[in-house]
Nucleic acid binder design. Sequence first.
DNA 1: CCGGATCCTCATGGATACTG
DNA 2: CAGTATCCATGAGGATCCGG
Lengths: 125, 125
Amino acid sequence: MSQATSEAIELCEEDRLSLIRDVLERIGDKWSVVVICQLDDTTRRFNELSRMSKPITKRMLSATLQGLERDGLVTRTVHDAKPPRVDYALTPRGMSLLSVVRALAGWAENNAAGIVESRAAYDAR
Amino acid sequence: MSQATSEAIELCEEDRLSLIRDVLERIGDKWSVVVICQLDDTTRRFNELSRMSKPITKRMLSATLQGLERDGLVTRTVHDAKPPRVDYALTPRGMSLLSVVRALAGWAENNAAGIVESRAAYDAR
DNA sequence: CCGGATCCTCATGGATACTG
DNA sequence: CAGTATCCATGAGGATCCGG
C-alpha cells in the first residue's frame, strides 16, 4: 500500500482494476445513476423519485435506493405521519460520486457524435 | 455542436442521462475496462491480451475488442505473416476514455474504505 | 403512500469444440 | 496464432399482487 508509485494515478494493475470494477458494479446497474442524478442537491420522496425516473418500477427503485443507502451514498429518513412519508437525499459521498458521474457525462457529450459516426462506418463494413 | 450551453457541465436532464447510460453500457460490461487498461499506451497482440486479462475467454475478448473497435476506441491491424499476427491499440478517443476511467479509479480508491465500513454497518442493521 | 413477495423473461457471459 | 460456432447456466430486472 505504501507503494507510492511516484505520484498521482499511475497504472492499471490488479488492485486498481478491481476497484474500478467495484465502482462500475455500483453505478453500472440500470437505475443507480438515474436516481443519483435526480437526488442532485435536494431531498426527494419515494413517489417523487418514482415519477421522475419513469419508467422505473417501484421494485427497482426500492432495490436501487437500498443499495445506495447500504454504500452510504444516500440517506433514508422516515417521517411517521399519515400518510407515510420517506425522504431520500445524497450524502457527501454520494455528491462526490455525482461529480465523477458528471465527468463521465462530459466525456460522453464530447464523444457521442464521433462514436455514432464510427459505428456507422463499422457497420457499413 | 456549437451549442455551448453558457458554460461547463450543467445538470442531469433527459439527454444527459441517456448519454451517461450509453457510456455505462459501453464500459459497464465485464471486460471492456480491463482490456482498455491493458492497452494503455502500447499495442498488444490478441493472445497477449488474453493472457494478461485472465480469466477472460477468447470468445469474450474477441467480442469486447470488436465492440471497442466499432466505437472507434481501439484499432485492429492485421499483419499477414505466418503465424498470423493481429495488433490492437487505443485510438486517441480510447485514450481519452482511459483517462476518465482513471478518474473513476481515483474516486474508488478514495472511497473504498468508507464504503466497506458503511456496508458493514448497514448489514449489522 | 411506501414498499415487500413472487413469478417469469431474457440478455450476459462461461465452457467447449472447431477452423484458417 | 487468432479467432468463430454452439450450447447452456445464471442473475438482473420487469409485471403483478399483496400488506402496513
